[in-house]
Nucleic acid binder design. Structure first.
Length: 590
RNA sequence: GCACUCGUAGCUCAGAUGGAUAGAGCGCUGCCCUCCGAAGGCAGAGGUCGUGAGUUCGAAUCUCGCCGAGUGCGCCA
């Protein structure tokens, strides 16, 4: 037995096939009218459109065939030719029992596992994370977990931005501020004794120096040239520069990893742009041999426009007129790099939607050069996060809001809420802190994940730190409530037993549980974690209604109690799986 | 200028491949804790789905025009 929806769809499909019509007309969906039915099939209308006959007549044949299915209690025709299906309590009970026994709660696996890279997060050396990094890391993490859960072999790569012009800027900015560092850069053989000098530079220094240096480089050509030379020296392997650069990368990575980890985001790989640097020269030579490299206005480019482009795609700039590698160059080299150590069959770039053109050109160049098979590279774009004024989010002071500060703020609110609920004393101090953090992070992540990734949305601090309604804490609350219920049940020796479906709330809950597999499959196809977030909310709400309508421990009889206990346990298991995929952790109490 | 995205309740958002009475949360009104956790539940008000046409038995969804918002368009990443 599989999902009720697909089971019904197969039955309806067979009925269409028996009429000599395409089986895919039998697609069954959740009913738009829960007051009338659990599921519906609209295939008769589509069949009528292609000339198969009067829709109600076809619908009648389908309904008759469905009524014979053991899954179906009633199948009726309504309106112009809808088939309304109500599943039998027995079928629901059997499905619930199946889900209860399945550690994956009904989730299917992909038919053939693929090697997949998810490129997300986009951290850079010397830049602390701000709210703009929320989406990249949270959505990417959810997609990585989803693909892994459904059976692919997945590597999440932070794709560390550690090798560009900004490195040269930092080297000279640090040197200008501290003569010892300037000397260190020119030291041809720096050793352990010089480590102490490095310790003077922390992430806060880099975070402070970088924006100033970047701004100055725009207006001060001499400064810019020094930074360019420093960049070239670094990439040419100058010992002192490399020594300093490794320190930059190290301190940044430590801080970033800590912030990512707080958000439940952990990368398998921290491959950096620097790692692919050695691949660039041979790659450029290879592109030239393949005849793809063209000189244009002093630069060397690969033309990727196609005849059917509505607007001709811009070329990929491989070598600048100054001879340096560009953003697209390292991205192309990264594709080669990944092929050597992982040979991915699919690579998902979870990156801001605004870079769509960039990825289009890189992907086309990669296909032209034979570095990846057509269609194996995919940009999973997401919209920007705006302030309540519709412009990219800024704090009231006009600056960017650091992710760290946002997390602290939300965790602080959670602490207040926990204390107000008198959970302060019940929990040990470290558990109290950990729980507050979980609640706060759940609020943040869910508020982001519930939006479809492709559209921009408004970042409203109030909404992100709200704990009521359709929020992360609501989901945690329902899960914690079940846990509490199960603890109490264990205390009184109540055990789960065979599931029977009688109450409307039990039906609704079971139908929600049933939908999980289909939701995961669709979320996977569309790379859309919001569908899972939406499902988790629906499930939690169905449980909350069930909880209110159907006493468990005080059930009228032992069988009902055992059945409801089993339903509660199954709900918890699925909620845990769904939140696990979303990267949201659940506390024991809150 | 060209291309792409978007416009749905007072606010924030779901509604892909056309179907019945367009959903949810917040906010608002009114109920529900002597009963398993009220971060909860129930009920209600609130919408010409930007706008005008077209295709269709049927359009928030498809096509075109217009209005409005955003984004991108080789030597930053």
């Amino acid at each position: 037995m599989s999902e009720l929806r697909s089971g019904l769809g197969e039955a309806a499909g067979a009925a269409f096939a028996a009429l000599g019509l395409p089986a895919d007309l039998g697609r069954v969906t959740a009913s738009d009218r829960p007051d009338l039915a659990d599921f519906q099939c609209n295939g008769a209308l589509a069949a009528a459109k292609s000339g198969a006959g009067p829709p109600r007549e076809i619908a009648a044949r389908i309904a008759a065939a469905l009524a014979a299915s053991p899954l179906v209690a009633t199948a009726e025709i309504a309106g112009p030719g809808f088939v309304n299906i109500r599943v039998s309590d027995g079928a629901l009970a059997a499905r619930a029992a199946e889900l209860a026994a399945d550690p994956r709660s009904g989730a299917r696996r992909v038919q053939a596992s693929r090697r997949v890279i998810v490129d997300y997060g986009g951290p850079n050396v010397a830049k602390e994370m701000h709210v703009g990094h929320l989406r990249a890391s949270i959505i990417g993490e959810a997609i990585k977990r989803l693909f892994r859960f459904l059976g692919d072999e997945v590597q999440g790569d932070a794709h560390f931005g550690d090798w560009g012009f900004q490195m040269g800027l930092l080297i000279i900015a640090c040197g200008d501020e501290d003569p010892d560092i300037a000397a260190l850069v020119d030291n041809s053989a720096p050793g352990p004794a010089d480590e102490a000098i490095l310790d003077r530079i922390g992430l806060d220094d880099l975070d402070r120096l970088y924006p100033a240096a970047a701004a100055r480089a725009k207006t001060d050509p001499a400064y810019r040239d020094r930074a360019r030379r420093a960049t070239a020296d670094l990439q040419a392997g100058k010992a002192g520069a490399l020594f300093l650069w490794r320190h930059f990368a190290r301190v940044t990575k430590v801080a970033l990893e800590r912030d990512f980890h707080t958000l439940g985001v952990d990368f398998d790989l921290w491959r950096g742009e620097s790692d692919v640097d050695p691949l660039i020269a041979p790659m450029v030579a290879d592109l030239a041999i393949k005849g793809l490299l063209v000189d244009d206005a002093g630069a060397r480019i690969v033309r990727v426009a196609r005849e059917d482009d509505k607007r001709p795609a811009p070329p990929l700039l491989v070598v600048s007129s100054e001879g340096s590698a560009m953003y697209g160059t390292t991205d192309l080299a990264t594709i080669l790099d990944r092929r050597t150590f992982f040979d991915p069959e699919l690579c998902l770039y979870v990156v801001d939607q605004r870079q769509a053109d960039h990825f289009l050109t890189v992907f086309r160049a990669a296909y032209l050069a034979g570095y990846a098979s057509e269609g194996s590279l995919e940009h999973v774009g997401f919209g920007t996060m705006n302030g309540t004024d519709g412009k990219p989010f800024k704090t009231r002071a006009g600056g960017v809001l650091k992710l760290r500060d946002l997390i602290d703020m939300v965790a602080g609110k959670a602490r207040e809420r926990l204390a107000a609920a008198d959970l302060g004393q019940e929990l040990a101090p470290e558990d109290f802190q950990a729980t507050a953090l979980m609640v706060g992070v759940a609020a943040l992540k869910f508020a982001d994940l519930i939006n479809y990734r492709g559209t921009s949305y408004v970042f409203d601090l109030e909404r992100f730190s709200s704990f009521e309604g359709k929020t992360g804490p609501y989901l945690l609350y329902q899960a914690v409530r079940v846990k509490s219920l199960l603890r109490k049940a264990a205390e009184v020796g109540a055990t789960p037993g065979p599931i029977a479906i009688a109450d409307a709330a039990e039906r609704e809950l079971t139908l929600a549980l049933d939908a999980f597999a289909g939701v995961l499959a669709e979320a996977y196809e569309r790379r859309a974690p919001n569908l899972i977030a939406e499902h988790a909310f629906r499930l939690a709400r169905s449980f909350s209604r069930f909880y209110g309508a159907c006493p468990v421990l005080a059930a009228p009889d032992a069988q009902t109690r055992a059945s409801r206990l089993a339903l509660a346990q199954t709900t918890l298991a699925q909620l845990e799986l769904a939140l696990e995929v979303l990267g949201i952790s659940i506390p024991e109490r809150m």
